[in-house]
Structures are given as structure tokens and as C-alpha cells.
């Protein structure tokens, strides 16, 4: 059993929730999202984010618009769709359920 692998698995599950939560506050472009995720040590390599964003967008949870940037290439600003918002709410409630579940199991120790 590789401890790193297990940690990664745990992060994976909540990564989507975190991205949706970040975007719930404000629209953002990948580097913004990365900064927040990195600050909370939720992400190890940046490459993880891009497939995830593309998939969420293709599933209709996100849309984006282009914005020109003074420094560097044009940026894709992502925002939640209506579907994304309801999806985020559902994930949120299931996250709370998980939290309760973990706490319950631990408190029985």
C-alpha cells in the first residue's frame, strides 16, 4: 500500500468540489484556481487541473469566455452554469454527510 497513492485518491474526490466552490465565489482563470488550490495544498502538479476543467466544461457544469491578457496568452475565464451551481450544491451536501460520517465513526473509538 502506497501512502502517497491513498492521499492522492482522497484529494481527487474533493478536487471537483473545491474547483466548483472557488468558481462559485467568482469567475476565474486556471492560474487563479491553481493559486488557491496550491495555497491549500490540495494540488501537487498543475497539470491535474486542465483535464478536470475540460471535463467539467464538457459536462455542462462550466462555461468560459476569452479575455486578452497584458502579460501572456489570452485567458480562459471559467464560470459556473446553472447546472454547475446545482451540482456544486449537491456535492456540498454529500461532503457534509461524509464529514459527519467520519466524525461519527471516529467518536465511537
Amino acid at each position: 500500500m502506497n501512502i502517497e497513492n491513498t492521499k492522492a485518491q482522497m484529494r481527487k474526490g474533493i478536487l471537483e468540489l473545491c474547483i466548483l466552490s472557488i468558481l462559485e465565489k467568482n469567475e476565474a482563470y486556471p492560474s487563479d484556481i491553481l493559486n488557491e488550490l496550491k495555497a491549500s495544498k490540495l494540488i501537487v502538479v498543475e497539470g491535474t487541473l486542465y483535464p478536470l476543467l475540460t471535463r467539467l466544461k464538457n459536462d455542462g457544469l462550466l462555461t468560459y469566455r476569452w479575455e486578452e491578457s497584458n502579460s501572456g496568452p489570452p485567458r480562459k475565464y471559467f464560470q459556473l452554469t446553472e447546472l454547475g451551481k446545482s451540482f456544486s450544491l449537491e456535492l456540498d451536501s454529500s461532503w457534509k454527510e461524509l464529514q459527519n460520517a467520519v466524525q461519527k465513526i471516529r467518536s465511537k473509538k
Binding site: 481527487k12 478536487l15 494540488i43 498543475e46 497539470g47 491535474t48 483535464p51 478536470l52
Partner: peptide
């Protein structure tokens, strides 16, 4: 490459 990570390091539940 260190920042972005090698593709096998990408943690995406869907492509696992």
C-alpha cells in the same frame, strides 16, 4: 515540468 507535473502524476479521478 515540475510545476505542471508528469502526465502520470495528474490526479484526475476520471482518467485514473
Amino acid at each position: 515540468i515540475a510545476i505542471m507535473g508528469q502526465p502520470e502524476q495528474f490526479e484526475d479521478s476520471e482518467t485514473e
